[in-house]
């Protein structure tokens, strides 16, 4: 790893200042992706600003919403009785137990890996990403691969999940990495069904209109059958081509509804 300067501010204002002062400063949370990327020299920040000293960890429920602090680990979310069980199940399937003890929700969605789990939960639940400056609806937050609506110097402080009637998550793991070959998060909300797909899209996580329409009309695994999932815009790689992923989206959607 290239030399760097480490900062661990105790106040949000100091973290923002450190991010602005560094030549190429990056936020460090659990580090389970960032440090590996730096070791491979795919990223070479001059400064790391560790936000684990900012008391951004913890889960709280209020008025039907559940707020998960940015530096809450996957293990903490997996063990939580406050988040929706589908979100807890999703967190319990990220990486492996060791990664879950360090990795954070804020880190996962800030990175927006196209095969990460959390983007599916955040988009599928219609959550709100809370930063130091504003609140961003999940629908406006995720950009393309590794791209989000976050601006320079903006720090995620929490993710707020609304209450939904039902929700479920099903994931087909890439057997070596445990990343999603395809993951589908379904949620039944007062405004209809939401279906978020991760691991499959060339532009990262996305909502599937056809599946949402079918499940809004009839919330059942069978309702998925009649939906056509096009391979257009899906990834093809050595693990599976776009047609294979398109089929897996239907299979995972069916399973996700079944466990909801």
């Amino acid at each position: 790893m290239y030399p760097l300067k480490y900062h661990k501010p105790a106040a949000l204002a100091d973290a923002i200042a450190a991010l602005g002062a560094g030549e190429e400063a990056k936020v460090l949370a659990g580090g389970q992706t960032l440090l590996a990327t730096m070791k491979q020299h795919l990223a070479a920040p001059t400064d790391l600003v560790d936000i684990r000293g900012l008391s951004l960890s913890g889960i709280s429920a209020a008025g039907g919403d559940v707020t998960v602090g940015a530096t809450t680990t996957h293990a903490e979310v997996a063990a939580s009785g406050e988040v929706h069980p589908a979100v807890a199940v999703l967190a319990a399937g990220i990486g492996d137990p060791l990664v879950r003890n360090m990795g954070t929700i804020g880190g996962s969605i800030a990175n927006n890996d196209p095969a990460a789990d959390y983007p599916a939960a955040v988009l599928g639940m219609g959550a709100t990403v809370v930063t130091n400056t504003r609140e961003i609806a999940a629908d406006d937050y995720f950009g393309g691969l590794f791209t989000t609506a976050l601006e320079e110097g903006e720090i995620i402080t929490a993710v707020r999940f609304p209450n939904v009637e039902r929700a479920g998550y099903a994931k087909f793991k890439q057997p070596a990495s445990r990343f999603c070959l395809v993951g589908v998060f379904v949620a039944k909300t007062a405004d209809g069904a939401r279906v978020a797909v991760t691991g499959a899209g060339e532009d990262g996580v996305f909502r599937h209109e056809g599946l949402e329409a079918a499940l809004s009309a009839n919330w059942s695994p069978e309702a998925v059958e009649a939906v056509t999932v096009s391979p257009d815009g899906l990834m093809s790689d050595i693990h599976g081509d776009a047609e294979y992923r398109a089929n897996l989206i239907k299979v995972m959607a069916r399973r996700a509804v079944a466990v909801s």
Partner: peptide, 27 residues
């Protein structure tokens, strides 16, 4: 592996098992 995959480097930090190749000592 030194890439957060193999788990040969696991130690306990404050009572939780973690991959020591994926944490900074200063942190």
């Amino acid at each position: 592996c030194d890439t957060t995959q193999c788990g040969a480097c696991v130690v306990h930090v404050n009572g939780a098992a973690v991959k020591s190749c994926s944490a900074l000592a200063v942190a």
